[in-house]
Amino acid sequence: MTERYPGYDVLAKRGGVSWDERTRRAVDERLAVAREPGFFSAGEFLTLEAVCGRILPQPAHRPAIPVAAMLDANLLAGNSQGFRVGALPHDGEAWKLGLAAFEAEARSAFALAFFALGAPPQDELLHAAQDGKLQNSAWGEMPCDLFFAKRVIVDVTAMYYSHPTAWSEMGFGGPASPRGYVRMEANRRDPWEAVEAKPGGAALAREANRRVG
């Protein structure tokens, strides 16, 4: 797939008037996330990386967003939504239980570790979880569809779309304080917003995005 916003890098604005100190600190911290797990065990982390890689597969042409590491760091810091829904345990506990259950499902269905399955069987298990069809005793009292909807989807998408690489990919303006925006009408782009590639216009967009800052 060709890029929608070629050459646009939201981080080019980092030193300018669209970013304030507090925002720089928050995003810097995110970009410096430890790649080794601190909350999950090494085994759990392999499964988690595989799950994240299927929920949001990443293109090969750029460095991957470390989704699993970001989630690990947040759970380690005690960052949580706080509430739990009915039959789900609290965040970290639900994740540990769910990852163990995916691992058990993989071993019983394919006699392989989840991370070693490859994409199609992994997707098959994730779809089955989404549809509430996984029955392995490793799930305990936790319904697999609830885990999928309230933890896997919520947390993995939140980590991915909190990363500047994701903002650049989708043409999101990103942090915007104190400068904000001026041009509110349709099809009016502030000069510090991403340029979308029109059909056949990738080179033009790439050139224009070089000046966004």
């Binding site: 304030d20 995003v27 949580s80 706080g82 509430f83 009915g86 909190s162």
Partner: peptide
Amino acid sequence: QDFASDELTQNQLYWTDKRISDG
């Protein structure tokens, strides 16, 4: 000085103590 232009960081504004939601 405290508010980042960032969805995730600003979870600091919500009630994230333990609660149970059911029904």
